[in-house]
Design a protein around this nucleic acid. Structure first.
Length: 488
RNA sequence: AGCGUAGUGGCCAAAUGGUUUAAGGCACAUGGUUUUCAUCCAUGCGAUUGCGGGUUCAAAUCCCGUCUACGCUACCA
């Protein structure tokens, strides 16, 4: 068996779609696991929809996910890689034309002079009579010489593939044996009047010429695969092994629309999700490990992946599950790494942390690690460190500051802070001791501390955050809180 | 209209004829964890395996039918 060669062939008409990412992931996993080659090929034949910035945007998505390619086209700073180029379909046009001509000259295809209008009428009639809409093969048996003459005279025509008799059998890695009667297919077009290829011809030629051995793609192509198989055969290529994967559905169970937030994989980066989360989650939509393991790093995925555990049914996107997976990854991440990933989110929120030491920032990340579900939540969890409290959480004010005895308790807390070292341990012990002495519960003290120091009712542990805030600042904030409560 | 694929608790899914009174996780609920939110831990909740037949001693698993969803049937990709 020759070396595994797989590919992802997106049409760069925008961003990297979550569905494309899923397909790319499985191709990539297979390549990495087998030591094979992962090829990036751009299906950019739809010229007006393809722009260089789209190519860049799409590849930014791949890079963020950590899906790297061994062969692919040049763009931006990327050099062309690989010996099977060009890797843009638009630059392979002549190859496709030649393949079409070859089939024509071998009698495996023929020119069709039917007009579009004729065919439209025929199709409509078929619909009305509840017959399957298929081309009737009118031009199939046209005399070759006559056909050529009409073509040379400039008569508009397309080239159709002459679908052979018999049946086509595909051994799909996911779908199993797919057997189709060739008579279910009409003679489909392979070359447009301009001589440009139709998609089906182009992919087959490209996959054939690039020696692609395995094709993992969306199951929307399952029916097309029989056509492709016939084309592979007719052109004398070895057929690759196919694996048709179910597509990604949105939370309503519909095909993931491009317009939906989250269709772009980079939307998830923006929302504070980790690339390994996306890989992990998407892998679990359509593949399951044999055991109860659910959390996988990129490397673990490469190791654990196996073709025979791919599923056939489509899965709906589930935000809650994604969040959970993200939390799991955040928790196992080295603290320095979490710090470095979280800091840019603070910058984006306009928070200036340049005055803090690296050690302090690491500590800040550490006290949040067990609580965060997304990177973005860091802002809500820590912004009070970097600015004065301009407003106390209204609900918390009602629940804490406006309670009977709040002021007395704040005075007690202030005394504790004044008399003790401002460390997690010291504060904890001191508060506990005071609680016992005054017969108070921690629940009557800690929420007041939190609210006074952070203005919020949630966040990192109170003593931990107090230590990071520093003694002077804590005392100042407690005094402010006392003034505030007096004014109520 | 033909052909194709899928249908297991709200969601992801395991189990391809029997060790299953259908795993596990998410979500949800309750309790505990230095208050609350979150995390974590524990417990719990919840499925006549789309529906109807059949084969079998035995079916989520095999067969037939049916419904629903999606895909392909483009001079789109």
């Amino acid at each position: 068996m020759s070396e595994v060669r797989v590919r992802i062939a997106p049409s760069p008409s925008g961003f990297l779609h979550i569905g494309t990412a899923k397909i790319a992931l499985f191709n990539w996993l297979y390549a990495r696991q087998t030591g094979g080659t992962f090829v990036l090929r751009l299906e950019d034949t739809d010229a007006d929809r393809t722009e260089e910035e789209f190519v860049q945007a799409m590849c930014d998505g791949f890079k963020w996910l950590g899906i790297d390619w061994d062969e692919g086209p040049a763009f931006g700073d990327e050099p062309q890689k690989g010996d099977f180029g060009p890797y843009r379909q638009s630059e392979r046009n002549q190859l496709h034309r030649d393949a079409g001509q070859k089939l024509l000259s071998e009698g495996k295809a023929y020119r069709c002079f039917c007009t579009k209008e004729e065919l439209d009428i025929e199709r409509e009639r078929a619909q009305k009579e509840k017959r399957p809409p298929r081309y009737n093969g009118k031009c199939r048996d046209l005399d070759a010489a006559e056909s050529q003459a009409r073509h040379e005279a400039g008569e508009r025509n397309v080239v159709r593939f002459k679908v052979p008799e018999g049946q086509t059998i595909i051994e799909d890695l996911v779908q199993g044996t797919v057997e189709t009667q060739n008579k279910e297919f009409d003679d489909f077009v392979i070359l447009k009047p301009t001589g440009d290829p139709i998609f089906h011809l182009a992919v087959v030629v490209d996959d054939g010429d690039m020696n692609i051995t395995h094709v993992f793609r969306g199951d929307d192509h399952l029916t097309n695969t029989s056509r492709h198989a016939m084309l592979f055969d007719a052109l004398g290529y070895d057929r690759p092994i196919f694996a048709h994967l179910p597509m990604v559905l949105d939370e309503q169970g519909k095909k993931y629309s491009k317009r939906l937030h989250g269709a772009n994989v980079l939307d998830w980066r923006e929302d504070g999700y980790l690339p390994e989360t996306m890989l992990n989650y998407v892998a679990l939509m359509g593949w399951s490990p044999g055991d109860d393991e659910e959390i996988f790093t990129r490397d673990e995925l490469v190791k654990a992946f196996s073709v025979d555990r791919l599923g056939k049914s489509a899965a709906k996107f589930d935000m809650k599950r994604l969040q959970w997976i993200n939390g799991q990854h955040m928790r196992t991440m080295p603290i320095e790494e979490l710090r470095d990933r979280v800091l840019p989110r603070l910058s984006e929120a306009g928070i200036d942390f340049s005055g803090k030491s690296e050690e302090w920032l690491t500590q800040m990340a550490a006290i949040c690690q067990e609580k965060l579900k997304t990177l973005n939540e860091i802002v809500d969890y820590t912004d009070f460190f970097f600015k004065d409290i301009d407003e106390y959480n209204a609900k918390a004010v009602k629940k804490q500051f406006q309670k009977e005895g709040a002021l007395d308790r704040l005075e007690i807390i202030l005394a504790v802070f004044q008399e003790n070292d401002c460390t997690t341990q010291a504060l904890h012990d001191a508060i506990e001791a005071v609680c016992e002495e005054k017969e108070l519960g921690l629940g009557q003290i800690n929420p007041l501390v939190r609210l006074s120091l952070s203005g919020k009712m949630m966040g990192p542990g109170v003593f931990e955050l107090a230590e990071l805030l520093g003694k002077d600042e804590c005392i100042k904030r407690l005094e402010n809180a006392i003034e505030y409560v007096k004014g109520l």
